[in-house]
Design a protein around this nucleic acid. Structure first.
Length: 317
DNA sequence: AACGCATACAACCGCATGGAA
DNA sequence: ATTCCATGCGGTTGTATGCGT
């Protein structure tokens, strides 16, 4: 029996999301929380497949997503984890809570794959290639190795590392599916909120880009690009000040600290009672999500002890 | 300035999985 | 035990943008 399509193909919009659609989706999730995606198109009026809504939320609108350049630390971590786990992007993403699996996957495919290939093919000298292969093997394996090892040893070590990684994953999953925080930046942060900007940022950037585009080219809708630059024009084609509308929707953003997190939140006036009112179920859900990381951090040293120090010169040529 | 190619990334597609009925 | 549904996941595609000629 064939599986029915996840959504009616007729009348379902595809392609890039507009800021208006984003706002509709985020406001819905704010009220109802994520989940029950099947109901989202019906309840929001979005002419999108439920799957598309979920994907848009998890990959772009969800709070806590950091976009843009990957740090060296993140890069190394991805390489390490990819070596251990393979293309298990969701598993890898669980170690980089600010990044989505999609982002990591894209980054791997567009940057890291190439970098590694270059590293392996970069030298004409055969010996040098061997030396680098050995370095690669050393650097992608156990933290405890400070010298290069034979292939057999390397395979054994890899198995051990996989075992450790699995253990760490189990640990992570056993504590209420909280992500394992490895990033030093996150470790250092006194509260999770400072590294957990709301989705406001994501849409704020997007909106600004949209406004820029819509003023110069009304017929073209832009969606999503973190690279879109700012514009002072924040009205859409219908004259609605989207930034204001957005602010009214997401004024709670300031509750999550980080004043530089949101361009919109900067213009907020302090109003405690208003803030309290805006402290919705959605926020509680967010806060719940951020709780308990300290507990998770315990006993996660197996994986966090990966020898980043051994790979610090990984891309040095 | 125009064109073509390369790159980056958002979004889609189809399959897998787990849970409820 | 079986079916159905919701969601998760990884691979792939489409398109905007950048860059070189």
């Amino acid at each position: 029996m064939g599986r029915p399509p996840c959504c009616d193909k007729l009348g379902v919009k595809k392609g890039p999301w507009t800021p208006e659609e984003d706002i509709m989706l985020v406001s819905y999730v704010q009220q109802h929380g994520p989940g029950n995606w099947r109901q989202v198109p019906t309840n929001t009026g979005l002419r999108r497949c439920s799957k598309s809504c979920r994907l848009r939320w998890t990959n772009y609108l969800r709070p806590g997503i950091r976009r843009g350049d990957f740090t060296d630390e993140e890069e190394k971590m991805i390489i390490q984890l990819q070596a251990l786990l393979g293309n298990k992007w969701a598993a890898i993403a669980s170690y980089l809570p600010e990044r989505t699996d999609n982002d990591i996957k894209n980054y791997w495919n567009t940057h890291l794959k190439k970098k590694l290939r270059k590293l392996q093919m970069g030298s004409d000298e055969h010996d040098l290639i061997h030396e680098r292969k050995d370095r690669f093997m050393c650097s992608t394996t156990s933290s405890s190795s400070s010298h290069c090892i034979s292939k057999g040893q390397w395979e054994k070590r890899l198995q051990t590392d996989i075992h450790l990684a699995k253990q760490a994953l189990n640990d992570a999953l056993s504590v209420d599916h909280k992500p394992l925080i490895i990033s030093p930046q996150i470790m250092k942060s006194p509260t999770q909120t400072s590294v957990y900007p709301s989705s406001t940022d994501n849409i704020a950037k997007l909106l600004k880009g949209f406004m820029k585009n819509s003023t110069s080219n009304n017929k073209k809708t832009c969606s999503n690009s973190s690279t879109r630059e700012s514009s002072d024009e924040c009205k859409n084609s219908s004259g609605v000040d989207l930034s204001e509308a957005f602010e009214s929707l997401f004024g709670f953003d300031r509750c999550f600290g980080s004043p530089n997190n949101s361009e919109f939140s900067q213009s907020n006036t302090s109003n405690e009672s208003k803030e309290e009112l805006q402290f919705t179920m959605f926020e509680n859900w967010l806060l719940d999500e951020t709780a308990g990381d300290d507990v998770v951090n315990q006993g996660k040293e197996d994986l966090s002890n990966f020898a980043f120090d051994e790979t610090t010169d990984f891309f040095d040529d």
